[in-house]
Structures are given as structure tokens and as C-alpha cells.
Amino acid sequence: MASTLRNCTLVIALCSAAIFPGSGPVRADHATVRNYRPFTTELYTKDKKLARIALRRFIGKGKEYYLAVNPDTLESELAPVGKYLFLKRSLGEMREEHGNRAYFKALAFSERNSRNLQNAGITHISGHGAAVYLTADLCPTRRPLDRALFMRIMNEYGNYHKPVPVALSITGRWMEKHSADLRWLIDLEKNKIISIVWINHTYTHLYKKNLPLSKNFLLNKTAGIDEEILHNEIAMIESGLIPSVFFRFPGLISNREAFLKITGLGLIPVGSDAWLGKNQWPKQGSIILVHANNQELVGMKRLAGLINAKQKAIAAGEWMLRDIRAGIVEYMKMY
């Protein structure tokens, strides 16, 4: 990297809002997002240390932002253009240059499991014996969120550890119909009851009942993968969310071509080895999948029963829910 910096010029990105107070992530709450596009560049601190990898660029509230990821922690940020120095690079160039950083390791690791029709990507996270990783899908539905059951689960675990880490795979169609439920979830996070990683689950979650899996969901010939991904990210940002670098295929259905389009957009696909609604029970390191959209209540009820049964182990630190980002960062140290 030292030689790269000697041979390339780092430029301060200038815009009408080049100076921003504070150093934390910026939320573009309810901003109308314009000119949203893939845009990859390395972002550096003033002392020329790599700080973030930008994946998108857009205009919100009249200011320019990057959607960027910390390559060591996998945390996402909406970074105002001008906050960091930048060096324009393609994603491929950055993967080659920084392949030892957790983010790029995770991209490459997910691609090892990219040929399966069902459940491709990262499905299990080794490295921390007591941990499992809770993911909950919010697929399109007319049904409201079952807040009582959701809170029962969060409170049972939250009696011992708060905030409760959960990764929510969200769709644009769900956000359209459930703005009050979305705001309720955001308020839970603001009150430190839960800690949410927002996973892109496409905008429409396209599904045709009579089509075979090999031609369904994102494999449907009418599906536009770029549009599904970017449209959903726009909807997330306009709803006050910060999209993570994770992606979940609708129905957990994909093929190699679709998979590489997702990683080509800088997203890390995650599946599950413990879909509770299908009677798959978690073990150490499992990525649990439930549907929090009131469409598969059996999974949520099994989760509630599981947490209740694990009370002593939770209290003793022998069974825990963990942030999926921290788990993958630790897991990548093994590779």
C-alpha cells in the first residue's frame, strides 16, 4: 500500500458541504435520494490511513454522500463527500490490493459457496463457541408485524443482554406497507433495546407460484438484479436506515451468475443453517432464520421457546446472540 500511495495522488473531494461537524455516521433521514449509483473508491483519513471502502454515491438533501463500509469492522456509514480523502479504484483492484482485510475476505469466502441453487453464501459462522446469529426476514405481506411476539423474544433475551443484536432482511415492498412498524423498530434501536443490521432483501421479492425454483425469485427472467438492489437501498436510506454490506437472496434461491452480480455490487450474501420454520435447529455458530413479518409464526414461536429454554445458558454466557458483523470479522481471521 505504501508504494501505491507514492504512485497515486490522494485528492480531497470538494462539494458545497465539505465540512461536517462530528465524526459519527450521518443518517440521511427521509431525504429524497437522487443520482444514486455504484461508485467504488478508497477513502482515507488525513494521515492517509485506509478508513472506508465506498460502494455507492448519491445526493441527499442537496449534499453528496458515499455509502461506505469499514473494511475491518464491516460497519456501514453514509459518509459526506469531503469527510475523507479518496483514491478512485475499481472493486476488483481493491479486492486484489486489500484481500487481507475482513470485508474483502468475506466477499471471497462467500463466493466459495456460490453455485448452489439453494442457500448459497455464508450460512454458518465459526470462531466463537457460544454464539449464534439471529436474522429475521421482512418479506412483502399485508399482515402487520407481530409486535407482542417480537417483544416477548427481545425481552426474554434482553433480561440478560441489551441491546439484542438482530439482522433484519428488509424489502422495499414491506417498507411501503408498514411504515409504522418500521418506525417502531427504529425506535427500539434508538432506545437501545435492539441493535439492527439492515440486510438488503431486494425491493419486490419477486415470486411466481407456478415457476420452478431455477426460474423463480431473482432467477426469473424478468428480474432486474441491479434495479432490485439499488432501488431497495434508496428506499432504506430514505427511510432513515443505513444499508449494510449483507444481502439475502429471496427464497435463498440463486445461481452462480446471480451470485456474482451481487458480490460485484460489493454485497456479501448470507444464507442460514437454522431456518426454524423448516425445523432446522441451531448449533454453535448457526445463522438463525425466522420471518418477523407474521407470515411464518411457527418460526418465531420456536425462537421464543428456544430462548426460554436457554435462560440458564444465556445467564452464564454459554449461549448468546451476537452481531453478525463481529462474528464474520472474527471468522475471517481463520482464513
Rank of each mutant, 00 (worst) to 15 (best):
K208L: 13
D181L: 00
E176Q: 14
I193T: 15
A106P: 04
E228H: 05
G224L: 13
L218E: 14
K190C: 02
R142C: 02
R112D: 00
V166S: 08
G121H: 01
A167F: 08
N220K: 10
G172L: 10
N216H: 03
N210I: 01
D137K: 09
L219H: 09
A136F: 00
G224D: 15
D226N: 12
R101H: 11
A131K: 07
E111K: 09
I186E: 12
S114H: 02
M94E: 01
L91Q: 11
Y133N: 03
F104H: 12
K208R: 15
I193H: 13
I122Q: 01
L168V: 05
T123N: 15
F104Q: 07
C139T: 10
N200Q: 06
L182F: 02
H201T: 00
A167G: 01
I193C: 10
I193D: 08
R112C: 01
Q118G: 13
E97I: 12
Q118E: 14
R143S: 09
L149M: 09
L219Y: 10
T135M: 07
K215T: 05
L138V: 02
N100K: 14
T135K: 06
K177Q: 10
D187I: 10
G92I: 12
T135R: 02
G129E: 14
E111P: 12
D226E: 13
R115W: 11
W184H: 10
G158M: 00
G224K: 13
K215Q: 15
I186Q: 15
L134C: 06
Y103A: 07
A223Y: 04
Y133C: 04
R173N: 06
G172T: 08
L107S: 06
E227H: 13
E228S: 02
V197K: 11
R183M: 08
I225Y: 10
G92C: 10
R152A: 15
Y103R: 06
I170D: 07
N220E: 13
K177E: 13
S114Y: 00
R152N: 15
S169M: 10
S110H: 11
P144L: 04
A108Y: 03
R142F: 06
T204Q: 09
T135H: 05
V132Y: 04
V164C: 06
L182N: 07
P144A: 02
K208F: 13
T141I: 04
R112A: 02
H161P: 03
H98Q: 11
K209Q: 14
Y133P: 05
A136W: 00
R152F: 06
L138H: 08
W184R: 04
R142K: 13
D146P: 07
A130H: 12
F217I: 08
S195Y: 11
A130E: 15
L168E: 01
Y103N: 07
R115K: 15
S114F: 00
N191E: 15
G172H: 08
H205R: 04
L117F: 08
H98I: 11
T202C: 04
